[in-house]
Design a protein around this nucleic acid. Structure first.
Lengths: 203, 187
DNA sequence: AGCTTACTTTGAAAAGC
DNA sequence: GCTTTAAAAAGTAAGCT
């Protein structure tokens, strides 16, 4: 059944072994990252394509699996950062990123750009922010988003800054440090994004 | 529609060369105290020139790599200069170097800001990952170059082997961006 | 809060691990 | 794939005052 993936290959067994190992790693990552079956299925599909194209040769299977999973998260808009995937797989973030770019290039994948709106929920729950603040942050992001101040900026930094501003407006006692840690960005980044937000929204 | 013609600056030219003979790197180290040579970490010796400000890697095979020049001509001049200095220092080099330009890096500014997110969806062979890098990476087929495009309208073009290819690449991209309405003039 | 320094991305060659 | 060189773009990061 598995050998139909590449009927032209004379060495089916190694391919079988490779994919079994990849799939067991995907299963392990599934629990660590708490992603659904649909994401894992997409990751397996991407990995299989990479295997068929010979992209795994001379490369770490684990790094490719991690990159395929990250690609699946991106494709399904499942909010998992590169850092999340790197930590769960024990692979350097830089290596996962490099493999991810390789997959995008070689398999001609088109990924939606990470939406800062999707980042808000994660940061808010990690920092223990209220639903009201979350809503406010979403409003701020919506206004800011196509005021073109988001181009080139890290979506996490934008979401964190919007949440921080929302906290101040709602009188929630959260520091920049609290939000920064929950978002995985520095306080400096929140301040820099805040400047742009303040200027654009005349806050 | 371009309000302004793109301003292009050649920032770095990489050239490879060979004198078709082996050279004694340890001897160069003795005669030129300012060179860097750590064979345990890299097989090339680093020979720096103050003008043009360049760094030339010299290998025992007689092959070299010159980086840092601001033009094709400067890169060629730099390599000839290095060979001349080696000869004056007493390093026996019979032939003149055969030089080849390998890569040209340039920066440029288009006349307006860019809608990167839209560009990422419309331009083929492009990738835009703001969490990893602020620029849109576009692989152009003709001339075969890679362009890093930023929201400000500034860009970096690399991969060209001729200065004319750089200008062609920038013009091609500028035209493409305008055709697809991805440029935002004014402000 | 600044300032400095430094790292992310792109391309290509060199010799060898 | 890595090592070393150079340079730009803009964002983010870290250390120090």
């Amino acid at each position: 059944r598995l050998r139909t993936w590449d009927s032209r290959s004379q060495v089916h067994e190694p391919v079988d072994r490779n994919f079994r190992q990849a799939f067991s790693e995907l299963d392990r990552l599934k629990d660590k990252l708490a992603v659904g079956d649909a994401v894992i299925e997409k990751a397996a599909y991407v990995y299989r394509k990479a295997l068929e194209k010979g992209l795994v040769r001379g490369r770490s299977i684990s790094a490719l699996v991690a990159a395929a999973l990250y690609a699946a998260c991106r494709d399904t808009e499942t909010p998992r950062t590169l850092k999340d995937v790197a930590n769960a797989s024990n692979i350097k973030k830089k290596d996962v990123a490099r493999c991810y770019r390789l997959l995008i290039r070689e398999l001609d994948l088109k990924m939606p750009v990470v939406d800062p709106v999707k980042c808000v929920a994660r940061i808010a729950s990690k920092a223990g922010l209220t639903e009201k603040t979350k809503r406010k942050a979403l409003e701020i992001l919506k206004k800011a988003e196509e005021g073109k101040i988001s181009a080139g900026k890290d979506p996490m930094g934008l979401a964190a800054a919007a949440l921080y501003v929302a906290c101040v407006m709602n009188g929630e006692n959260k520091t920049q440090k609290d939000v920064a840690e929950a978002a995985g960005v520095t306080e400096v980044t929140i301040r820099n994004r805040y400047k742009g937000l303040k200027t654009h929204l005349k806050l | 529609m371009p309000q302004t013609k793109p301003m292009v600056s050649i920032e770095n030219v990489v050239a490879s060369a060979t004198v078709n003979q082996t050279v004694n790197l340890n001897l160069i180290t003795q005669i030129f105290p300012d060179v860097e040579y750590h064979p345990d970490q890299f097989p090339g010796l680093v020979f720096r020139l103050k003008a043009p400000k360049t760094a030339t890697l010299i290998f025992s095979s007689g092959k070299m790599v010159c980086t840092g020049a601001k033009s094709e001509e400067q890169a060629i001049k730099a390599v000839r200069n290095v060979v001349q200095k080696l000869r004056k220092g007493g390093i026996p080099i019979e032939n003149d170097p055969i030089i080849e330009i390998q890569n040209i890096v340039a920066s440029a500014s288009l006349g307006g800001k860019i809608h990167l997110e839209l560009a990422a969806r419309i331009l083929p062979r492009s990738m835009y990952e703001p969490e990893q890098f602020p620029g849109l990476i576009h692989r152009m087929l003709d001339p075969k170059t890679v362009i890093l495009l930023f929201a400000s309208g500034k860009l970096v073009c690399t991969g060209a082997k001729k200065e004319t290819e750089v200008y062609r690449a920038v013009t091609n991209l500028h035209t493409l961006l305008e055709e697809k309405n991805l440029m935002i003039y004014e402000s």
